[in-house]
Amino acid sequence: MAQILVIDDEPEVVRFVERALVGDGHDVATAYDGAVGLGLALNEPPDLVVLDLVMPGVDGRKVLRALHGARPDVGVLVLSAESDVGARVEVLEAGAVDFLGKPFAIRELLARVRARIAASTHGVGHDDVLRVGQVVLDLQTRELRIDGRAMALPEREFLLMRYLMRRADRVCSREELLAEVWGYAFDPATNVVDVCVARLRHRLRSDVIRTVRNVGYQLQSG
């Protein structure tokens, strides 16, 4: 059972989503404005936040930025009527793990929630630590270690690093990374992959992630 927080100022939408998530076996908390929702998310961090963008007062963008800054381990699925490419790119680059436009099919929302929950927990158990060369990734703590330095990774950087490390020395295309790490079956005209790789390179202070021109990226083992 996952702990999910729904933040939306439309009571009908909140009740609709809450019923569906509870019926799917999740424990659900709700908030009807951004300030209350952000407080709940920070005080009792859920496994996933389902967040509307357009709300009075503290809107969804402010909630996303504040939550991602304070608790980058908490995934945020944005659910919004602002579904143009610009809005999608903006929230993905701000740290959201997924985006679904309104109106939406509840089956798709449930599928995306299951995928996000599975992605955040997959691999913990028999394979708790990944090692590629001098890079070590702890799958339980999400801590990245290299050259005596240790750092906790935000959600998206962790998922990307885990994917690349499990495919060390193999070239992964941007389309593949968008599909497997971001959950997109199409290219939403965004450079989120490149931005996320740049952040990882900055943390690593190393060139172990190689750019393969016009294709994608490769994590090198040696």
Rank of each mutant, 00 (worst) to 15 (best):
V36T: 15
L110K: 11
D84G: 05
L67S: 07
P46H: 10
G60W: 06
A35N: 06
S83V: 03
D33C: 00
A118S: 08
V54L: 15
E90G: 00
G60R: 09
V76I: 15
E44V: 13
P46G: 09
A70V: 15
E44S: 13
R116Q: 12
L38A: 03
A41I: 10
P72W: 07
R71N: 13
G86H: 13
K62I: 14
R71L: 12
H122L: 03
A70F: 09
P103C: 11
S80G: 11
N43W: 03
E82I: 02
L67C: 06
A66P: 03
H122G: 08
A119W: 05
H122F: 04
G34R: 01
L38Y: 09
A105V: 15
A70L: 13
G123T: 04
D98V: 08
E44L: 12
L40V: 05
S80T: 07
A70E: 15
R88Y: 09
V36W: 04
N43T: 15
K62W: 13
A41L: 09
A115N: 07
R65M: 13
L67R: 08
A119G: 02
L92D: 08
L100D: 11
A118V: 00
V78Q: 05
K62D: 13
V78H: 02
E90Y: 04
P45Q: 11
D33M: 10
E44A: 14
L77M: 11
R61E: 12
D84R: 04
S83R: 08
P45H: 13
T121M: 05
V76E: 06
P46M: 10
G60C: 07
E82N: 11
L38F: 08
V113R: 03
N43Q: 15
L109R: 05
G95E: 04
V97K: 01
L100I: 14
V50A: 06
V50L: 12
R107Q: 15
V85K: 14
P45L: 05
G123H: 03
V85W: 10
A118I: 00
V36R: 10
I106D: 06
G86T: 12
A70R: 14
I117L: 04
R61F: 12
V74N: 01
P45N: 07
V50Q: 09
L92T: 00
P103Q: 11
L40E: 06
A94L: 13
L67A: 03
E93N: 14
R116M: 02
P45I: 10
V113Y: 00
L67H: 04
V36S: 07
V50K: 04
V54H: 14
K102W: 09
E108V: 08
A70S: 13
L51Y: 07
A111L: 07
E108M: 07
K102L: 04
A94Y: 02
L42I: 15
H68P: 06
N43Y: 07
T121H: 01
R61K: 15
D52K: 05
I106H: 05
A119F: 03
L38T: 07
A41E: 02
P56I: 10
F99H: 09
L79H: 07
E90F: 06
V36C: 02
G123S: 06
G75H: 02
V58E: 11
R112W: 02
A87M: 09
L77N: 10
G39E: 12
I106S: 02
S80Y: 04
